[in-house]
Amino acid sequence: MPVEFTERSLLKYTQKVIELFRNPKNIGEMENPTVTTVEGDPQCGDMFKMYLKIEGDKITDAKFLSFGCAANIATGSMTTEMIKGKTVDDAGKISIKEIADGLGGLPGLKMHCAVLAYKTLKKAIQEYKQGKSGGDQTSSKGS
């Protein structure tokens, strides 16, 4: 049986992660968001809620709530910072690697926390686009 070596780096956070955990950016509820999306499950130990305000296909504001570890909170801060001011399409092109790189890397075991923020973003964008093509409040408001 091959021995699995435990890496210290599996649990060690970068300064950037700790900094964003200590002073998270864009955290809290948002009034009148264009999209609100929840991913994850408290049973599994992390849950992520993202609010986007979108005006003319541009993300003008992004906020989040987190039930999760430091990696989850830091990733939420990084993701929301990265997408603010971007068009919905450009925000949709952001990769997990870019988010993790922005944090100076994440411990191997914590990559799933980055995935959660990323998945929430993808879902939010999908929901926004579906809402638009399905003739929802955005288009009905205009008529």
Binding site: T6, L10, L11, I18, F21, R22, C44, G45, D46, F67, G68, C69, A70, A71, N72, I73, L109, K110, H112, C113
Partner: peptide
Amino acid sequence: EGESVLLHLDLNGISVATGSACSTRKL
């Protein structure tokens, strides 16, 4: 979530343990 509590207490100089999955290698 326990790991967040643990790290915030640590930032305040307090060392404790958590039963949270996120603080272990097993999740």
